[in-house]
Design a protein around this nucleic acid. Structure first.
Lengths: 404, 404
DNA sequence: TTAATTCGTTCTGTCACCGAACTTATTGAC
DNA sequence: GTCAATAAGTTCGGTGACAGAACGAATTAA
């Protein structure tokens, strides 16, 4: 396998690879039928891929009439990527192979000192995991970092990142590339969550998808027409500033965002305090509601009412087929059921609202998805601007259970 | 020129065509430098294009050292497209040639009987215009229809189309194709308006753009990452239903839309009536405001206040670089100036808001843009899914003045 | 054993493209 | 005026990515 495989074969190689990735062990004759390319060409391409170490023989067919066929398969460990979900309180790191299987996953509290400390922490976690699984560093090709805020690929900086100290003043991309020694992609964590749910979760096969992460803050990720929407300054989905729920012209709304002030953690505890006079954390409010506390129930009702309006706004602007709720609050069934009931009362067209299937790991899985897509693209595709490699769901499904 | 040119040359031909379209009269040597293809290849491709009638010699260079070069140019009249902007009250029809010049434009009141009558009316207008300019029907390759509502390419129907009688019950696409005898694309008129402003108006070179058409109703068109956003049911941009300005849970808001009830024509006249007790049409209110009528001024202030919130919601969700106002009300400078002043008070990040440059013809020009892009794609490109042909601005600029 | 069937290779051919060498037509310098 | 220098365009040979037909090889059903 060459170290920097510059593969000249153009478009066919890509589809052959896709057939092999999707089709599991597959014979060359079947690839030929699938791709429409001649058997001869397939043999050439597969020979090349085998020489470079990307695919390998795995067996032969048997049972049906005719000659037995040699089947080929991805070499799973030909390359690895690092997927990272970097939150304000917790870092998750995972290693994925080419066949979309997660090998190692680790999660620890984020280093509170921020900045370079966090970056070194992530690098250490990743390399420990690699060492544990005996993965040679050379085979790690790419790292995808999900982080809150609006990463700007041009400058490598992350704008609007409130959660990690020191990140607003440094070139995060460069620092990661130096620490990890591989190419790095940084993407907003909620954007990754949409990708994750689109790949393995609630949004499979849905090209128009919105993900709302509701917790300490609110953010949303949007996938429209199969493309991630990033916006002009990579700030698309900063729905905390939607003029819904609180007076948008209030000074406080310019800082925190009107919608965030209506639905996020602080809004909920504040609402409960003003109703009952007691200051309680969000989980306790949910408990109280379950126990029949009228104040808590009213708080949930009101929060859901604003959330439904926010979803209506997104639906009116972007018309997603499905809206997925995530985040510590968005995942609560008490919220989901209320929002589901309220939606038809404030929006005329049907909008499907569901809770995310991947829970807190949506962003991590999304990072793996985007990284694997990117890797397949750079390794086997030409620069097709639209190039979305469809990753296999079957094998990756294992990932959902293997981990944690 | 073959009647159905199936051009086998793959990707190079496309870039050669693009160089010729963009570069005006251009020599083969220059094309070679521009595209990176060898001189030899360019000569071959250009020879092919010339034989098929798409390009022609136009002259020779002179002045600089070295041999003179033969320059080539598009054959402007090699193909035409029909662009239609079908409104509830007015139909506009235009004919455009391959070089993006509008040849004929006509506008008349929409046939009030709706349905097939409107389709026949449009066909008649188009063919009259073609005959006037001596354009043979064979050279018309495509028609693009802009219409309110959500056209569904799968069924050919237009959903949510309130303005034209009978359109909700028929296969509009089929009917148009039968009447016009060419391939037809139907697109939402506001979506076309974004494309128009993106091509020749306020949004040139801007990949993340929103267009808000404000008049009898409100609608918006969104271009994000260079792609038109259509949404799951082609209802993206139906911002009339954003839960802003009126109570979204009110029964009336489910029918008309809360935001529409806050900013569109009816809201303005109603607001003026409740303030002054007199029922006046919108233009009169603007006149009164200009004359210093306090009630009228208050109405404009309040309307702009809600509009600014709507823009804030779009900006929060989609993060466009620029928001363009259009429609009979959106184009008024009184509205624009107010909105510009209000934006920073209700949204923390800068959003550029401007009035459309193309006025009521934005959708028509957008129809031409999408049609020309599509035509260049089918004629000279392979099925590149992302394929946006960049149309020349210079020549098309003439179009802005020639017409009407 | 034979026929039917499928896999995979070999051989030949085509097409898109490149690069080098060469011809042709200019302008500018002496 | 002649002679570089320069640029445009063609001819020629070559390469790599395919296709298609023919053929050998391996397997099962009859």
């Amino acid at each position: 396998m060459s170290d920097l495989p510059r593969i000249s074969r153009q478009f066919s190689q890509r589809s052959v690879m896709e057939a092999i990735v999707q089709g599991g062990p597959i014979s060359r004759a079947s690839i030929s039928k699938l791709t429409g390319l001649s058997k001869q060409t397939i043999s050439e391409i597969v020979r090349g891929l085998e020489q470079e170490g990307w695919v390998q023989e795995t067996g032969r067919t048997s049972g049906h009439v005719g000659r037995t066929a040699v089947t080929y398969e991805l070499v799973h460990d030909a390359a690895y990527i690092i997927a990272v979900d970097l939150g304000g309180t917790k870092v998750r790191v995972a290693l994925t192979d080419l066949a979309c299987q997660i090998f190692a996953e680790a999660a620890t509290p984020t280093d509170p000192r921020g900045g370079q400390f966090v970056i070194d922490q992530i690098a250490a976690l990743a390399f420990q995991a690699a060492a544990r699984e005996r993965i040679p560093r050379k085979k790690i090709r790419l790292a995808v970092i999900g982080a809150p805020g609006a990463p700007d690929p041009a400058t490598g900086r992350i704008l609007l990142a409130p959660n990690i100290a020191g990140f607003d003043a440094m070139n995060v991309l460069d620092a990661f590339e130096k620490a990890l020694g591989v190419a790095v992609m940084i993407e907003n964590d909620v954007n990754l969550a949409v990708l994750g749910e689109n790949w393995l979760g609630q949004g499979q096969g849905i090209d128009n998808l919105a993900y709302i992460a509701l917790g300490t803050g609110v953010g949303s990720g949007l996938m429209l027409g199969g493309h991630l929407v990033r916006g002009a300054t990579h700030a698309a989905g900063e729905i905390g500033f939607m003029p819904i729920g609180a007076d948008p012209f209030a000074a406080e709304s310019l800082r925190t965002g009107a919608f965030e002030r209506a639905v996020a953690t602080h809004a909920i505890t504040e609402r409960y305090r003003s109703l009952t006079g007691t200051q309680v954390a969000v989980p306790a409010i949910f408990e109280n509601a379950a126990a029949g506390d009228k104040g808590a129930l009213a708080v949930l009702d009101e929060t859901a009412r604003y959330l439904a309006q926010g979803i209506a706004a997104i639906a009116a602007v972007a018309n997603p087929e499905k809206v997925i709720l995530g985040g510590s609050i968005g995942l609560r069934p008490e919220i989901l059921s209320r929002v589901k009931a309220l939606m038809p009362l404030c929006f005329p067209y049907p909008v499907t609202v569901e809770a995310g299937e991947l829970g807190a790991r949506a962003a991590l899985i999304g990072a793996a998805a985007i990284g694997l897509g990117q890797l397949h693209n750079t390794l086997f595709g030409v620069d097709a601007p639209d190039g979305r490699i469809s990753l296999p769901t079957a094998q990756a499904a294992a990932l959902k259970e293997v981990v944690l």
